[in-house]
Nucleic acid binder design. Structure first.
Length: 317
DNA sequence: TTTAGCCTAAGATAACGTGC
DNA sequence: GCACGTTATCTTAGGCTAAA
């Protein structure tokens, strides 16, 4: 029995699918079958039930997997400890996020406080982040809506209003709020399908009773302001994206009906043991968003209190 | 509704190559 | 020689469809 066999077993056990596990491990499926067979032979027990052309982790396999997970966790801990005493300690946290204008600022302020932590950051759409989490290529991600997958935990961080971004010359630009149905004939600028925001706004339009006429699809959310300013169409804009907007050529108008809110969530991989850096960062993100929610609330109704609770912070406590 | 035939997907096996 | 990988091929099971 060696570490490679155990690593292969762990992957197959998590997926219960030899071909998919082989793809994940970048080896050929027959080789993986043989490795698992050798491991079973070494142990003298079968770890998987062969059900026709499918395999399923059996009771012995489940118990063995628990020990393997614990062993890898211990080894990882040992590696961290060993590297730490050399003074070259460096931990990498892999993060993915939907486009959020303040993420770079958030990461920068964390790194300033914890220079020993390194990050690998990538921005993506909802579907790509879900795949990255599923493939365990990232530790945690910020998304809207929350990503639901086995072996992950997700908590809501912030609820934000979506508004309509209009050029100042638009007939509704001077209004305090509009009903969504009032813009059913308008040309929309939207994100491409697969972005959580696009799915959410399509759903809001459907609730209002129409299908948006999206004449311009973009991948870069930063283009929304520019295209609206150019008079190409109107767009949905999350309140946070517009909070610091000083562009005099555009205005974000609130939507009175339907209620257009989205929830930004934090999702992370469940592990035997969360590293101290990971745990620090997780708590930092929750607190950061708590402050953002307060900023949003005071911007929306100065002096008033935002009615929505921050579940993430409550669960943190 | 049942059954036979075909296609596809998935795992296992055999033979062989490569590197240590 | 051994371990571990690959490709080619085989076996099996499940899904689909058409005919009875």
């Amino acid at each position: 029995m060696d570490l490679l066999q155990l690593k292969y077993f762990q992957t197959v056990a998590r997926r219960e699918h030899i071909t998919q596990a082989a793809k994940e491990l970048n080896i050929a499926q027959p080789s993986l079958s043989q490795t698992i067979a050798r491991l079973e032979d070494d142990l003298g027990v079968t770890l998987f039930d062969r059900l026709g052309r499918n395999i399923r982790l059996n009771e012995a396999g489940r118990i063995f997997l628990q020990h393997v997970e614990r062993a890898f966790s211990e080894l990882e801990k040992g590696k961290r400890e060993a590297v730490r005493i050399t003074g070259k300690y460096e931990e990498v946290i892999t993060v993915a996020s939907i486009h959020l204008p303040f993420v770079s600022e958030m990461l920068a302020s964390f790194v300033a406080k914890h220079p020993e932590t390194r990050f690998r950051f990538q921005q993506g759409c909802y579907n790509s982040m879900k795949q990255l989490l599923k493939d365990r290529e990232i530790d945690l991600c910020l998304s809207a809506p929350p990503i639901e997958l086995p072996n992950t935990t997700s908590i809501p961080l912030l609820s934000e209003e979506l508004r309509l971004l209009l050029p100042v010359s638009h007939r509704l630009a001077s209004r305090e709020s509009v009903h969504l149905i009032e813009v059913e004939k308008e040309a929309f600028i939207g994100l491409k399908a697969g972005f959580g925001l696009r799915d959410a706004t399509d759903e809001f339009c459907r609730k209002a009773g129409f299908t948006p006429n999206v004449i311009f699809e973009v991948e870069d959310p930063a283009l929304l302001h520019k295209l609206v300013r150019a008079g190409i169409g109107i767009a949905f804009i999350p309140a946070l994206w517009d909070m610091d907007n000083t562009d005099p050529a555009t205005v974000a108008v609130r939507i009175a009906d339907p209620n257009c809110f989205r929830t930004i969530s934090l999702t992370w991989l469940e592990r035997q043991e969360l590293s101290p850096s990971f745990e620090r960062f997780r708590i930092y993100v929750i607190e950061y968003f708590h402050k953002l929610q307060q900023r949003l609330a005071s911007a929306a109704s100065p002096g008033g209190e935002h009615p929505r609770s921050i579940i993430g912070l409550e669960r943190l406590k």
